[in-house]
Design a protein around this nucleic acid. Structure first.
Lengths: 237, 237
DNA sequence: AGTCCACTCGTACGGTGTGCAAGTCCCTTG
DNA sequence: CAAGGGACTTGCACACCGTACGAGTGGACT
């Protein structure tokens, strides 16, 4: 042929350029985007393949199963969470910041709770995070099993509260109603069931009108403070 | 034919017996049994129909959608939970008993967490339970929003901790390993990732051998006590 | 030039939830 | 007793799912 070996034309792309290939990181990242956009129920291997311009089953060379992928994706979220050092500001402040950072990450990725409450977190980021939190609590003066328990209790508290939060946000989104409408309906339903309890009726009426998102955050810190009070009472100063 | 009208044979069943028909309660009960046996992933409308000797789509006359059925089924769990009165033993004891009763119910129906962290609980049993808990806390001296927050915080704490617990139990069951093996593997994995953190290494080594189920319960009450300490400090005596 | 291996992908299988329209039974009314 | 109507059941079909499998392809090595 015309092009000789070594001529410019014979290798438009650098000859050594390895074939463009899918990678695990690429897949995980695309999955995160898709989850953020469509939620857990909206993620399918077929759609994910299409989004990456790849055949559906190509993904299965890089990832054993969809559940495995979800574990990878969940571990990605842990990488977004801060665990400050205990040093200058004290353990209580560090744990508080951690908790808020955790909550913020979850609210950015609401699908996270569904995965995290279903499969244990054993990815490197999750374990690394535990390690740092462990350090903070140990430095705070907790000893023996108390370190593990304090850690577990804080983590699961955050997960529990935010699960509740994301679940009703999702329910509202599913219903197609506005938040206001949905809450009014739910309150009406509650009122119906508890119609013989005057106190609750009054409380339901009283709470109407307060911003639920803000209320949710207040509750989060309220419970966190309670928890931390209890922990503080159990640490040898 | 031989049998005359009115003879015993012509109507084995009392003639007026209305056609045997599916009922919502029947469906819910069968679903609970199936869930207890096979977990959430093991429940399908087809299998449920078969179990009830009914066509699959017959169920859809009594229940709008599978998700609706799951809500009904979850609300059934709430009916198994005790909320003692605050009266003789004090609010703290009542809430403690409630929390343990809640946890016990969840451990009996591990699939519950997956539903409860996904969809808000608005069924009559759930709301009724909230009402009673509300009464306890109000009687304890909480006022205004604090009642709601205290209630929410306790409920979500229990849900959070037990979610973690059921999730690793399920993971073990899925893996086919024994609990001991699985934990050893997980610990090894954690050790690998945190290999440069001497404190954790030591802690991991120390915890090997303690019964994880018992440890889980200790952690549950540990966190609960912390929470209650914090709450106690916030209630006007 | 030939071999090997990392990687891709089309096809197919056995499931899933559920909309739809036809059917069956019983109770009520004429 | 006949006819009508509504409560309830059901088979079929659709669109979608996760993934096992085996054939294919391209680049790097010998």
């Amino acid at each position: 042929m015309f092009a000789m070996r070594g001529s410019v034309w014979s290798r438009e792309r650098p000859a050594a350029a390895p074939r463009e290939t899918l990678s695990r990181g690429q897949i995980v990242q695309a999955a995160v985007e898709m989850l953020d956009a469509d939620g857990l129920a909206g993620l399918s291997m077929r759609k994910l393949g299409a989004k990456l311009n790849a055949g559906t089953t190509s993904l299965y060379w890089h990832v054993q199963t969809k559940d495995d992928l979800l574990e990878l994706v969940a571990d990605e979220v842990y990488s977004e969470i801060d665990v400050p050092e205990a040093e200058p500001a004290g353990w209580r402040s560090a744990v508080t910041l951690f908790a808020h950072s955790f909550r913020a990450a979850i609210l950015r990725h609401p699908w996270f709770t569904e995965i995290a409450t279903t499969t244990p977190s054993l990815g490197p980021n999750a374990i690394g995070l535990s390690g740092r939190l462990y350090g903070v609590l140990k430095a705070a003066g907790f000893t023996g099993l108390d370190v593990d328990m304090a850690m577990g209790v804080v983590i699961t508290y955050v997960l529990g509260v935010t699960s509740a939060e994301t679940s009703w946000r999702a329910a509202i989104a599913r219903s197609g109603q506005s938040m206001r409408e949905w809450i009014d309906d739910a309150t009406a339903q509650a009122a119906e069931v508890t119609r013989d309890n005057a106190e609750i009726q009054e409380s339901l009426r009283a709470r109407r009108g307060t911003d639920p998102e803000q209320l949710q955050e207040r509750m989060f810190t309220f419970g966190l403070e309670c928890m931390l009070d209890g922990l503080a009472a159990r640490v040898a100063t």
